[in-house]
């Protein structure tokens, strides 16, 4: 059987690359942690991979704003390749800092448009927050969304978040309406029973409680929570999971690997 190859892009300040690598390996993929300098030197290397990951961390210290310097670098040095890769339909995920990068490059919500129309700004609490939250996949989204990453999940799952700038906002309500209409908001913060949450279960004050979105085609997915930190039941505060051994985060990576196969 074909080995699915995953590229985990790292740079100064990336720090969730090892656990993300482990998560993909657990799902049967090969996962390489590749430094951005290597990729800039050999731009076409990216097309050797089936899946592209922008992992969590503090790229370049999140100086100026979270993910800003890395998205500026990617846009200016790898823009064409990344866009081409995204439009090819291959799975791309951005987790936490990676989500901030996807939004700031403009791969989300629409790689064809390739412009930033949303942002992830400072949490309402003005604090970094590390905690577990509930995430809801709405029925309509479950039915209509093309997102390849969030299949096979129950209505509500829990994942940990850890960020200081995760408040999803838009300068224009129309953009948000479009996301809703196209079923692109795949994860919203919620209570355990799926109902409307308050702080701290919405850890950042996101509009519409948005925690994760995908593009219309469904191959590009960005989210603030960390699925790579919940691949084993052991990692859950109460040691729950989808079976005795694995956590719900694993399903997300498995979905992408299975999609490629």
């Amino acid at each position: 059987m074909k080995k699915v190859k995953t590229l985990i892009l790292r740079t100064a300040g990336t720090n969730c690359d090892y656990e993300t690598q482990s998560a993909f390996e657990l799902c049967g993929a090969v996962a390489d942690r590749v430094h951005i300098n290597t990729l800039i030197e050999k731009k076409n290397k990216i097309f050797e991979y089936d899946i592209l990951v922008f992992p969590g961390g503090f790229s370049y210290g999140d100086d100026i704003a979270s993910g800003k310097i890395l998205s500026n670098e990617i846009k200016n040095k790898l823009g064409d390749e990344i866009k081409k890769y995204a439009l090819s339909g291959r799975p791309i995920v951005g987790i936490c800092n990676g989500f901030q990068v996807l939004v700031k490059i403009g791969l989300l919500p629409d790689p064809k448009f390739f412009k930033q129309i949303f942002t992830l700004s400072c949490n309402d609490s003005d604090k970094f927050e590390c905690r577990w939250v509930y995430l809801k996949v709405e029925k309509k989204v479950r039915r209509e969304s093309n997102c390849i990453w969030t299949k096979n999940l129950p209505d509500v799952i829990s994942l940990p978040v850890a960020h200081g700038e995760g408040k999803f906002v838009s300068g224009n309500e129309k953009f948000l309406d479009n996301l809703n209409k196209n079923s692109q908001i795949v994860f919203r913060y919620s209570l355990k029973d799926g109902s409307e949450p308050e702080y701290p279960l919405v850890p950042n004050g996101s509009i519409g409680h948005v925690a994760g979105i995908c593009n219309k085609k469904g191959n590009i997915f960005g989210l603030m929570p960390h699925p790579e930190r919940y691949v084993f039941t052991l990692q859950h505060p109460a040691r729950e999971g989808f079976n005795d051994r694995y956590g719900w985060g694993k399903v997300i990576f498995q979905n992408a690997v299975d999609f490629v196969i």
């Binding site: 969730c16 090892y18 604090k127 927050e129 590390c130 940990p160 960390h226 930190r229 052991l234």
Partner: peptide, 16 residues
């Protein structure tokens, strides 16, 4: 204090 620290990065904190 505790929640301002990312006490779960690396994914290995199994007793928190």
């Amino acid at each position: 204090i505790i929640r301002q620290y990312d006490h779960e990065v690396q994914g290995q904190t199994v007793v928190k």
